[in-house]
């Protein structure tokens, strides 16, 4: 797998969809390919976020460490990005990421990433758009959930009467 292919993968990530190709290649070039054996921890919940990982090959489990023990909440596959929120908002990791089978990922370190965001407004705009999409999607999910709750409440009170 070469830089060119990594670039192709990066381009398919909605986050980077609008970024110029040369900048995206630069990002790929500055990033580091990392291989993880099965079960290896990519990043741990609560640790400071220092990089995002773009899955190139294999799969990764997203695990939440709750009081009742770890719960796998999702499994991500090729072309998906994990850990991007932590580097954007300087927050600790909100979940543990663990390799499921052999995993190869592109490690996009926070420092060069943020630097590019700061220096290339195009990139910031496309990230903003992607985040706005996510918020919108979440809003409509929230609205749907609220409607559901309201309906349930209505039904319950109807049943009680």
């Amino acid at each position: 797998m070469s830089l060119q292919q990594e670039y192709e993968v990066l381009r398919r990530v909605p986050f980077f969809a609008e970024v110029e190709s040369s900048k995206l290649k630069l990002l790929a070039f500055m990033s580091e390919r990392v291989g993880f054996d099965d079960g290896k921890i990519v990043c741990r919940q609560g640790d400071p976020g220092d990089a995002a990982y773009l899955i190139i090959d294999g799969a990764a489990d997203i695990v939440l460490e709750g009081p009742a023990g770890p719960v796998t909440v999702a499994t991500l596959g090729a072309n998906e990005i994990v850990g991007e929120m932590a580097i954007l908002c300087n927050a600790p990791r909100n979940a543990t990421v663990r390799a499921k089978g052999r995993l190869v990922a592109l490690r996009i370190a926070k420092e060069p990433f943020m630097r590019m965001v700061r220096e290339f407004p195009n990139m910031a705009v496309s990230i903003m758009q992607e985040l706005a999409h996510r918020v919108q999607a979440m809003n409509s999910q929230l609205q749907a959930a609220r409607n559901e709750v309201n309906q349930l409440r209505a039904r319950m009170s109807a049943a009680a009467e």
Binding site: L3, S22, K23, K25, L26, F29, M30, P112, R115
Partner: peptide, 15 residues
């Protein structure tokens, strides 16, 4: 490749 990806960086850029 290098001239493409480093093209519009200022010369003193840490990258």
């Amino acid at each position: 490749t290098m001239t493409e990806i480093f093209a519009d960086l200022p010369a003193d850029h840490p990258f």
